[in-house]
Simulated scan of single mutants.
Amino acid sequence: MRKLNLFFKRLIDCVGALVGIIVISPILLCIILLIKFTSKGPIFFRQERLGKDGKVFRILKFRTMIVNAENTGTGLFVKTENDNRITKVGKILRTTSLDELPQLWNVVVGDMSLVGPRPPVPYHPYKYQEYSDDQKKRFNMKPGMTGLTQATVRNSVSWDERIPIDVEYIEKFNLWLDIKIIFRTLQKMINPESIYTESNKSQKQKNL
């Protein structure tokens, strides 16, 4: 049954991502123009991430911060929505998760899935070989544009606290769970909330 679920998951990924790119192409174009004319630098942000089984791939996002942001200020950490490295357009994109839309292409080419654990950078907070065997379970499936963690606690808890939630998703995976996560993510995009606070964290986990 799990293999069948995974087959249909990939089918849904391919069809859903391609249809999604076509349907939201006007939105993508508007975002591209806004980034282009409001801040200096490239439109897209590419970064190496850990994928399935620890394989490294390059994730694609809309740029939301100033150029070379990783090497200034708090580096990889964005602790508040008022971080001065975030552009004006970027602040909106991050709050609504619209900056993640280019990852539809990552889904099409097979590096990612629509739903799965979010992929960390290869060197932070741990290298792949530094994860315990139990923690490595989160890499047993392709990383997702959204996932159980994003639909519940998002960035309001530490990385170590997110790992068990990701492992829970891997162990409980089924297509119905994916559908619930997608709809919860869409709900959060329509009614955005702070991604930096712990408000209502336990309630969000409970209600999924």
Rank of each mutant, 00 (worst) to 15 (best):
I59F: 02
P117C: 03
R49Y: 00
K55F: 12
V78I: 15
Y131V: 10
V153M: 14
F57R: 02
V56T: 13
M112V: 08
R49Q: 01
T96K: 05
N84R: 14
W105G: 07
K137A: 14
T72K: 13
Q150G: 06
F139R: 03
M65C: 01
V56C: 10
L101G: 00
V109D: 12
K61C: 08
R154I: 10
D99P: 02
G110E: 06
R49A: 01
N140W: 14
P117S: 07
I92G: 12
A69D: 00
L104Q: 13
R94W: 03
A151F: 02
Y123D: 11
P122I: 02
L76K: 13
E70R: 00
G110P: 05
G51V: 03
E100M: 05
V56L: 08
V115A: 07
D111M: 04
F57Q: 04
E130G: 06
R154H: 12
R49V: 04
G110C: 10
K88M: 15
F57Y: 10
V67F: 06
R138E: 01
P125M: 13
D83F: 03
L148I: 04
N68R: 10
T72V: 11
V109G: 08
M141T: 13
E70G: 06
D134P: 10
P102F: 03
G51L: 02
K91Y: 06
P117K: 01
L93W: 04
S132H: 05
G110R: 11
G116P: 00
R63M: 04
E48N: 12
V115G: 02
G73M: 06
R58L: 11
Y123W: 14
T146C: 05
V107C: 09
D99A: 07
N68P: 03
P125Q: 12
G73S: 10
V78D: 10
V109A: 11
R94P: 09
P122H: 00
N106Y: 03
N106D: 13
K91L: 11
V153K: 14
V78P: 04
N155P: 05
E70F: 01
K55D: 14
K79D: 14
F62S: 00
D111Y: 01
E100L: 03
N155Y: 06
T146S: 08
S97E: 05
R49P: 00
P120M: 09
V107T: 06
T152L: 05
T80L: 11
G144K: 00
S113R: 03
P125V: 12
R58C: 04
K137H: 11
Q129T: 12
L98S: 04
